[in-house]
Measured scan of single mutants.
Amino acid sequence: WVPTKREEKYGVAFYNYDARGADELSLQIGDTVHILETYEGWYRGYTLRKKSKKGIFPASYIHLKE
């Protein structure tokens, strides 16, 4: 896992994603996520609506905010 280059990196989910394991994070369309790390097509972070739950999710489900 590699920390993100920018201190504040955010994105928005444009697909729903159902977590398949305890380390994964479920997403709903429109969720804003804070991205902490990246690795081979995956991000690690949390949604702003539930900051206490961190997990991994596919990068392809996220539109990055500039």
Rank of each mutant, 00 (worst) to 15 (best):
G55P: 01
T32I: 15
F14D: 06
I35W: 00
T38S: 14
Y10A: 03
A22F: 10
K5V: 10
I29V: 12
G45F: 06
G11V: 06
K51N: 10
Y39W: 12
S26H: 04
K51R: 09
V2G: 08
G41N: 09
T32Y: 15
E37F: 08
N16E: 08
V12R: 04
L64R: 05
W1K: 08
G11C: 09
P58L: 08
V33A: 00
R49Q: 14
S52C: 14
H63N: 09
G21A: 12
R49E: 13
K65M: 15
G41V: 05
I56V: 09
A59L: 03
P58R: 03
Y61M: 13
F57T: 01
T47C: 12
G55C: 08
K54D: 05
D23W: 10
R6I: 12
R20G: 06
I62C: 07
S26E: 04
S52F: 13
P58I: 13
D18W: 09
D18P: 05
G21P: 03
T4C: 15
N16L: 05
S60M: 14
E37Q: 07
R20P: 04
E66W: 10
D18M: 11
Y46V: 05
I29W: 05
I35N: 08
G30A: 03
L64T: 03
E24K: 04
Y17R: 00
E37R: 03
W1E: 07
E40P: 11
F57A: 01
E7G: 15
R20D: 05
F14P: 00
R44K: 10
Y15V: 15
I56T: 06
D23H: 11
D23A: 07
G45N: 02
E8F: 12
Y15A: 15
S52Y: 12
Y46L: 02
G55T: 04
Y46H: 10
T47E: 07
Y10R: 07
V2R: 14
E40A: 12
T38D: 05
Y15D: 15
Q28W: 07
S52W: 15
D31M: 07
I62H: 02
N16M: 06
Y39I: 09
A59D: 02
L25C: 05
A59K: 13
L64Y: 05
E66D: 12
K54Q: 11
V2D: 08
D31L: 04
V2Q: 12
Y61Q: 04
I56N: 04
T4N: 08
V12D: 01
H63Q: 14
Y61V: 15
T47H: 09
R20I: 09
G30K: 01
F14E: 08
F57K: 03
Q28Y: 08
L25K: 00
Y39N: 13
Y61T: 10
L48F: 12
E40G: 13
V2H: 13
K9W: 12
Y61K: 06
K5P: 10
Y61H: 15
S60W: 06
A59Y: 03
G30L: 01
R44G: 06
N16V: 07
G55D: 03
Y43C: 06
Y39A: 10
R6H: 12
E8V: 09
I56Y: 08
F14H: 13
K65W: 15
L27K: 02
E37D: 07
A59P: 02
R20Y: 05
S60D: 08
T4V: 14
K9I: 10
R44W: 15
T32S: 08
E37T: 04
K51T: 13
P3Y: 06
P3A: 07
H34M: 13
H63W: 14
I35C: 05
A13P: 03
R49Y: 12
E37V: 05
E37I: 11
L48S: 10
H63S: 09
H63Y: 11
D31P: 05
N16D: 11
G41D: 08
D31T: 04
K53A: 08
W1L: 08
S60A: 14
L25E: 00
S26C: 08
N16I: 06
I62S: 01
T32C: 15
H63A: 11
Y43S: 02
T47F: 04
E24P: 01
A13K: 05
E66F: 10
A19R: 00
K54V: 15
Y43L: 03
E24V: 03
A22L: 10
L25P: 00
W1I: 07
K51G: 10
E66Q: 13
K5A: 12
V33K: 01
F14Q: 13
I56D: 01
V12K: 05
E8C: 14
E37P: 01
P58F: 07
T38A: 12
G55W: 02
E40I: 06
E7Y: 13
D31R: 03
G55Y: 04
K9M: 14
G30E: 01
E37Y: 09
R49K: 14
D31Y: 05
K9H: 09
W42K: 01
A19E: 03
Y61R: 04
Y15N: 14
S52T: 11
E7R: 09
E40Y: 05
G30S: 02
N16S: 11
G11Y: 04
A13G: 01
G55M: 02
L64A: 02
Y10D: 01
K51H: 09
R44F: 15
A59W: 05
K51W: 10
R6W: 11
S26I: 04
S52M: 10
Y17S: 00
G30Q: 00
K9P: 03
E24G: 03
L64M: 06
K9F: 09
D31V: 06
L27F: 05
R20M: 11
W42L: 02
T4A: 15
S60N: 09
A59G: 05
R44L: 14
K53C: 09
L48N: 11
G55N: 03
V2Y: 09
K53W: 06
I56R: 08
G30C: 08
K5F: 09
Y46I: 04
S60P: 05
A19P: 06
W1Y: 07
I35E: 02
L27N: 00
S52E: 14
Y15C: 15
Y17A: 01
I62Y: 02
E7D: 11
T32E: 14
E37G: 07
E24H: 06
K50E: 15
Y10F: 11
E37W: 07
T38F: 13
V2F: 10
E8Q: 11
A13E: 05
E8N: 12
I29T: 06
Y61D: 01
D18A: 12
K54W: 10
K53T: 07
I29H: 04
T38C: 10
A59F: 03
E7M: 10
K9L: 14
S60V: 11
R49M: 10
K9S: 13
R44Y: 15
K5M: 10
A19L: 03
A13F: 02
Y46F: 06
A13S: 05
I62N: 00
Y17N: 00
T32A: 11
K50I: 10
T38M: 12
E7V: 10
K65C: 15
A22E: 13
K53E: 11
S60L: 08
L25M: 04
Y46W: 05
K53V: 12
A59C: 07
R6V: 12
D18E: 14
T32W: 15
E7W: 14
